[in-house]
Design a protein around this nucleic acid. Sequence first.
RNA 1: GGGACGAUAGCUCAGUCGGUAGAGCAACUGGCUUUUAACCAGUGGGUCCAGGGUUCGAGCCCCUGUCGUCCUACCA
Length: 480
Amino acid sequence: MSDELSVNEYRQQRIENMEKLSEAGYPAFGEAFERTDRLDRLHEQFELEKPVAACGRIVAMRKMGKLAFAHVNDGSARFQLMIQRDVIGEDAFKAFKLLDLGDCIGVQGAFFLTKTEENTIAVKIWKLLSKSLLPLPEKFHGLSDVETRYRQRSLDLISNPEVMDLFKKRSKVMREIRSYLDQRDFLEVETPMLQQLAGGAAAKPFQAHYNALNVDVFMRIAPELYLKRLIVGGMDRVYEMNRNFRNEGIDRTHNPEFTCLEIYQAYGDMRSMQTLIQGLFLHIAETVFEKIEFEWMGHTIQLQTPWKEVSYHDLICEHLGANWFELDEAGMRAIAEEREVGLEDVMSAKEITHEIYDKTIEGTLIQPTFITRLPAELVPLANTCADDPELVDVFELIIGGKEIAPAYSELNNPLEQRKRFEEQAKSDESAIDHDFLTALEIGMPPTGGMGIGIDRFMMLLTGSDAIRDVILFPQLKPRG
RNA sequence: GGGACGAUAGCUCAGUCGGUAGAGCAACUGGCUUUUAACCAGUGGGUCCAGGGUUCGAGCCCCUGUCGUCCUACCA
């Protein structure tokens, strides 16, 4: 990096140490090392005087005249090493003292217990596996500068165990999502990320150029239209959990590439999705976190099912008065003002209602809540309710005051879908995905569909208030 | 988009009224056989984010920019 000069002194000292070690018979970048087991499992297998081989990165060292202690970490746990001059010999001990924090070593020895009863390996042989040329962050405060943590995630993972733990949990969450769905006959599929039409959502796409075909392509904003093609094709339960890309701003809850789980179940509807998501979330909570209560921004969220369900109509009446929907526009505007919700002059009654919902009601729904029967205007791609064509058969799952997952009884009427695309495209014929419409005309069974933002789900589960904390390499501006 | 705040040694941070740049850890030298934020003695280490301005003199005051954090707005 460009700041190489500023760490030159430290780097130079370490290069000198590396050369001395090499001369003493410890080449700097050694070969693979056979260990008895990972360090976390060595703690479980601890048995006094049992022979053991272990390796890891040196994260702490306390060297004395004829004795030294060190802690190594292999990403699973820390383990203490004890090195005695009279055991390993004068030369090996002298060489050991040339090691720096950050170096990776392998040792052979035997389990040993110190006075303070800490699991330790009494070292008989050690090997240098990799020399670190750069200084590690300070051992006590660690690395806390937020920007450096995001830009140099390697260092963050090495010096902040809770960060390592969070990302291990994220990996397990994704594994358990797959396991839960696979067990229920859902097929994981991969659909195009490079698309000639970026459909399935309303968002600005990233653009790229495909040289071989000389065509412009878009990074996908959603996999929806392809997953539905698969439903038409007879893959009657499919899901995809992968990246979507939206060419929009970055803030605490938005990263331009984000991971989304989309699930479609043929012969099902919004109700099937309701059952599925409750089971899925409970499974994740129990298997990965071993609890069903989560602390989130000062609230305790209870995941015990069944979750609360309320229709949009009833929810509004509950908060804004039973006669809300009988009010005229002036009456609604008066209540909006009372609640300090800013409105635009052109807003319809439905838009006013939704604005107040967005600003003052949604945030109060801390416990998991399904909001059902939304006005059709708000959700263009869902089937209407059988008993009321003004409403759509969908839910919005709200947890911790945030939308976590929308689910639809998917629109499968190809004529209606065509009409809505045409309205949306406003006479731009090229913006309509005709292949998708053709698939719908072949006939899509009634289908329940759902989308879950995995990053925001992780925020909820880990109590993080920034999406960057749950994404290993969040998007940042280039440094000047 | 608007506003507030921040950037000083490898890391974590102090820096008074504008007057020679500080601490702890880390590093280096020496000592030390049960340490664990090891300890003791000594030494070295700075483009004070960048650029401009005011001033005899700027880490500090003013302007511009970069990156980040928070608030707010927008988007989904």
